Computed example of a mutant assay.
Amino acid sequence: MRNAAFIFPGQGSQYIGMGKDFYDEFKESRYVLEEASDALSMDLRKLCFDGSEEELRKTENTQPAILATSIAMLRVVEKEGIDCEYTAGLSLGEYTSIVLSGGFDFFDAIKIVQKRGGFMQSAVPLGVGGMVAILGLNQQKLSIVMESVREEDIVEVANYNSPEQIVISGELNGLKSASKKALELGAKKVVELPLSAPFHSSLLFKALNISDLESFDRTMKILQGGV
């Protein structure tokens, strides 16, 4: 018998209307969206189904929206008796994986990722950074691309998704220059990802300032029933 694994998506996979078919069809999914909305004191259903792309792209909204949608779908899968032996997640998706494995309950996790998203967005203002996927360019040529923008802006390799897809992250001007250079060197395609910040880059180190860490620690204590 084959072992099953569930792998959950991260930021960039969001879109308006995601999960609506599950919400309309299954009460299990509706319960998840209602619980998430109560936990966050916001109408997450409206954001996911009827909101704007701009609002959904803001990372403090994106993170809880993707987590809630993933769990809403997972609950239906579980109801059908489908389970897994292994679970993992891509970036934000690790939180869905942790909920599935029992590390957090969903009510706490949805609060944590909203805080996480807020800290990350505060590190780099909207319109300053982003991420780009480069398709069909080998690592040797990618090194040439990165060297060409090294003195211009902060641009770094974020993810080696496959030999044919590498994601870079950084400041928007640098990403634009890197994308142009990648196409000149033979990349099949470059895709700007629908994200509001340069995730998996050194620009996010600013999210680790002491005041944020103290605030996060206080939040965790409250979630755990402390003071």
Rank of each mutant, 00 (worst) to 15 (best):
S91N: 12
F106V: 04
F104C: 10
E85G: 14
R57L: 03
F107E: 15
A109L: 06
F205R: 14
E80I: 00
K79V: 05
D24P: 01
E151S: 14
D38L: 15
P9T: 03
E25K: 15
M120C: 04
Y86C: 00
P198D: 04
E184T: 07
G170M: 07
Q63G: 06
V128M: 12
K79N: 13
K79L: 03
K111I: 05
E35C: 10
E35Q: 15
G170V: 06
I98Q: 13
A207K: 13
L172T: 03
E78G: 00
Y23S: 02
I222V: 14
G127L: 05
K111T: 00
Q121G: 02
E54T: 04
D217T: 12
I222T: 13
S91W: 09
C48T: 00
I134S: 05
G89Q: 11
I7Q: 10
S122Q: 14
S143V: 02
M1D: 12
G102A: 06
L67E: 09
V128P: 00
C84Y: 14
S143F: 03
A68R: 06
I210K: 15
A187W: 11
E164N: 14
L33N: 04
F119R: 07
Q63A: 08
A88V: 00
S211W: 11
T69W: 04
S41T: 05
K79A: 12
L40I: 05
F106E: 01
S97K: 15
V157P: 12
Q224T: 02
G136M: 00
G103I: 03
G117H: 11
Y31T: 10
E184W: 13
T96D: 06
L33M: 12
R75P: 05
S101H: 08
K20E: 12
I134N: 08
C48P: 06
M1Q: 13
L137R: 14
S211A: 15
I66E: 01
V227I: 14
Y86N: 04
D217V: 02
I134C: 02
E60S: 02
T69Q: 10
Q140H: 11
A4N: 15
S196C: 09
V99L: 06
Y31H: 13
E34C: 02
Q14R: 11
P198T: 04
T59Y: 08
I71K: 08
P9C: 04
A68Q: 07
G170P: 00
F199T: 02
D21Y: 06
D21K: 15
E35Y: 14
E151R: 14
Q139R: 15
V113I: 12
F216D: 07
L92A: 09
E151F: 05
L100V: 11
S196P: 09
N159V: 08
E54P: 02
S215Q: 13
G17H: 11
R75D: 03
S101F: 03
G10N: 11
M120F: 10
A123H: 05
G129L: 02
K206Q: 14
V124M: 11
Q63H: 09
A39V: 01
K79R: 15
S97Y: 03
T69R: 13
G19L: 03
Q14K: 09
